[in-house]
Structures are given as structure tokens and as C-alpha cells.
Design a protein around this nucleic acid. Structure first.
Lengths: 251, 251
DNA sequence: AAAAAAACATGATACGAATCAGCATAAGAA
DNA sequence: TTCTTATGCTGATTCGTATCATGTTTTTTT
């Protein structure tokens, strides 16, 4: 791991920064899956109807659990509205695997027939609306429609890429890099704006970046002092995107 | 994270150890995928022949690269003999995602038609024999045979579970726990023996456990002094499995 | 509106683990 | 064989960051 001391000078540029830039462009901001197409485009009208006739729409309040790790997975969940975190729970601790914004699917890793349990828990950050699709119907349609099966492969692949990217970030980057990464991810992939109202607490940010709450607070202050971001209450604004990106890339 | 000081007393038992034991049994030793069935059992004779007629068998020497992250994936690789590491390469650093022992598949995340590139590099730890299967034929058979498609789903799911387990270990455990984990994984899932000849250097072990080489050496010595393991040259022997497991579980 | 709880903030301290430096030993090449 | 390079090993030092203590502000509950 490259040790960087950005504590005193956030913008000390290393000799190899050009190389880093070249190499990193594709795997920063890695907490949200980068998959645009809907897998339902591939379905026939009949198949769409089959899903539509069997689905249920459920509302969850902030903080509620959508699914609990280890329970039987009877449904696939599609997040229609809201924001959800997916985490694994071990040893009385949690690790957030990814954030699920609107339009994304939860529970695809449970379509396996061998072991149809949820391998993670999902919890709503904000009030959230979810469509539930019966897992057996989902399986039937995969059997019927191989194009659909391939789009499901695509989603699983995208998930895997996203996860390995996040894995790399949290194991190989220091705290400044991890936090910068989290902020950029929120801006780029969740809110898709440089300015957004963040419903997450510092504790949530800490959990996301795998660091202590106190450290998040200290570093946010540093970012603020360096005029990289502006924070007012819950409102975040990114003032210097490129330098934030550079911090993320340097680690 | 629970802070544990096993430096002075490796077996200081915490009050909550029973709870931990309950919770952790399923996700230790998480560097190798836990999937027993072969996906090829589902194939018809004709499909088996189709694969057989188009496959190539290739030998790689220790240290050689089987596939390079970013290159186009034209084949799926099945490790017939040997041991391979799969890693992602970013920022001039690497992160080992998993080890591939005999009988396992490399490149399944590239069957997606959108982006048929390898998302990781694979490097042989020892001399290795690989069967190459044309990716288009693999896709054809998935289209033809939905049972086969589901077994591929199963493998992808198992991969995802393995990766999230490893992710948890490397982010939430301290060095003793990580190293104990690595050793247990090698014994349980690669060699399937308490005694084995390890072809990996201390540097390799460090890379696997995401820690410095010096630290690995220090901790191996500690494990040796505490009579948890015995090391003679390349020969490793686990003397006290349960305590090693306890260290892994405590973090 | 008052009380309680949660979130935010900051300084001091402790500790794990990386880094550095130096040397011994083993393995491979000339 | 000798030279060279990779690997193994150990102690001292530095650095990042978690933890603790304590107080303030904001939010939620009564």
C-alpha cells in the first residue's frame, strides 16, 4: 500500500499520479452497481403479464428490514423508490456490500435452487417501495427465455464487478481515499448531481466507508476546510470534483 | 471492530465467545469457493461431445499468466490440475479475490455478452493444466439447456458468497485472524489435510491475507511458539485446529 | 414545551501494523 | 564453484486510525 500523508497537504502529488489516473478511471465509486438496462425488456408480453399478475407492491419505512440474512428467499425484490443498503452480518458486526437505488434488484443470488436463502440482509435507508416477484415464476421465465437468462447473468456479473471494486477500495485505500470514494459514489451513482440532500448520518457514512464515525467527522471537516465540499445540515455540495477524485485514486 | 490483544495471550477468551461460535461457523476460511457439483453433469451426451470436440488443453508453468484483466475473454478455463490465484489489479497494486484449485472454473463472469472481457487476472501458483472451452459454445449450451444455465447460476452465486465472506474477513479482522483464516482455508479447502506442503512464499501468504510480509513472519513464529502449527521448510502441519479456528473467529 | 435520545464534534491517548534497516540463509545463474 | 538475487527473519521506529472521554447541538419522544 502506498502510504500517503494527506493530513497536512491534501494535494501532495506523487510522481506516479499520471499512471494511477490511467489505470483507475474505471473502478472508483464502487458502492453501487453500474447497470443500466432493465432485464425485463427481454420479456414477451405474456411473460410480463405473468409477472405483473403475481407481483405485490410493498412499502417499507426508513430503517425497516426488507430481508434478513439466512431466511428463505421466496421473492425477488425490485426497488421502485427509495434507497436500500445490502449488508452481511457476522460476528455481531456488519459489512455493507452495496447500496441499491431505484430500479435495481435485490435477491438475485438466491435464484439458485440448491440454497434459496438470502445471503445478506437489506435495510431501507429511507421510505422505500418494493415490488415482490415470486422466485418460482422468475425461475420459470429464466427457463423459458434464454435472452432473459443472459440479462440476469449480466446483472450478476455487474454485481460481482462492483463488489470486487468495493473490496479493493476498502482493503487497499486509506481513510481519506475511502471517504472520498463514498462521497463520489453518492454523487455520481445515487443522486447523479454535484449537490444533494443526504439522508445518511455520519455513522452511516462511517459504516459505508468501513471506518470510525469520529474519523469521518474529522475528515469531512478537513474536506470542508480544503474547500472540496460544502456541507450545510443535510445538504452536500461537491466543490472540487477533480481533487476529490484524485484523493480517491491515490488511496 | 472488537479489539483483541492476542499478542501476549493468544487464548484470552472473551465473554461473548459462545455467541461468536454460533454465528461464524459458516463463513470462515473463505478464499476458495465451496461448490462441489460439476455443472457438466447436466449436459446431454451431444452437448458433452460438442464441448469435448472444441476444447483445448494447455499447460502453464508456475508464475505464468492464464488470463490478463481487461483482455477479451474468448474461452472459459477449467483448472484440471494445479493451483491458480485470481486477482484484480488497480493502482499498481493487486487484490487476490480467490484461489482456484483443481476442478474449478475461471472466467464465468465473462459469459455476459455485453462486455466479454476478463475482469481479473489469473496466475498459476504451481504448474497447472487448464481446459479451454470456447465461450460461444458455452453460451450456446446455456441457451439450449436451462438446467445447465441454473448450475452456472449456482456457481456464480457460490462465487459471490465466497467473495463476500473473504471481503468481510479482510476488512473486519485483525492480522492474527486473517492469517489464521488463510491457513485454515489452505488446509480445509485446498489440501484437505492437516499436513501439507505449501508452495507459497511468505510474501504470497501476506498477499493472500492482505498484510505485510514481515507481519506474516512474526505471526507464523507466534503461532509456532504457541504450538498451533509446525513448520519445517515448506511443510506445514496444523497442531491445534480448534484454537486456530477460535483466533480466526475472534478476528 | 420539557425531557430524553441521538447525532455531531473535538482533543488526548493507545495500539496495531506498516515501514525501514540490517543481516542470514536459500535458490538460481554465470 | 562463486556470484547474484530472492526469500526469511528480527528489532526499532513511524504512522494511521480506533478508542475513550467529554461536551454541544439537533432530533425525537413524552
Amino acid at each position: 500500500m502506498i502510504r500517503i500523508s494527506i493530513r497536512n497537504d491534501l494535494f501532495y502529488i506523487f510522481a506516479n499520479i499520471k499512471y494511477l489516473n490511467m489505470d483507475m478511471n474505471n473502478r472508483t465509486s464502487c458502492t453501487v452497481i453500474d447497470y443500466k438496462r432493465s432485464c425485463f425488456e427481454e420479456l414477451t408480453e405474456k411473460q410480463k403479464k405473468k409477472i405483473f399478475d403475481n407481483e405485490a407492491v410493498v412499502k417499507y419505512k426508513k430503517g425497516e428490514t426488507l430481508c434478513k440474512q439466512g431466511t428463505f428467499a421466496t421473492h425477488i425484490m425490485i426497488v421502485e423508490k427509495g434507497l436500500v443498503k445490502v449488508q452481511i452480518e457476522e460476528m455481531n458486526e456488519t459489512l455493507i456490500l452495496k447500496l441499491i437505488p431505484e430500479g435495481n434488484i435485490i435477491g438475485l443470488t438466491s435464484i439458485s435452487s440448491i440454497n434459496p436463502v438470502f445471503h445478506y440482509s437489506a435495510i431501507a435507508y429511507v421510505n422505500t417501495v418494493v415490488r415482490l416477484i415470486n422466485i418460482n415464476i422468475f425461475r420459470e421465465i429464466i427457463t423459458e427465455n434464454s435472452n432473459f437468462a443472459f440479462t440476469v447473468f449480466d446483472i450478476l456479473t455487474a454485481n460481482s464487478i462492483q463488489m470486487s471494486g468495493r473490496f479493493f477500495c476498502l482493503t487497499h485505500k486509506q481513510s481519506y481515499g475511502k471517504l472520498a470514494d463514498t462521497i463520489l459514489c453518492l454523487a455520481d451513482r445515487i443522486f447523479k448531481k454535484q449537490e444533494f440532500e443526504l439522508q445518511l448520518t455520519r455513522k452511516d457514512l462511517a459504516e459505508l466507508s468501513n471506518m470510525s464515525t469520529e474519523n469521518v467527522i474529522r475528515m469531512l471537516k478537513k474536506f470542508k476546510d480544503e474547500k472540496l465540499i460544502k456541507i450545510k445540515g443535510k445538504k452536500f455540495k461537491i466543490l472540487n470534483y477533480s481533487k476529490l477524485k484524485k484523493i480517491s485514486e491515490l488511496g
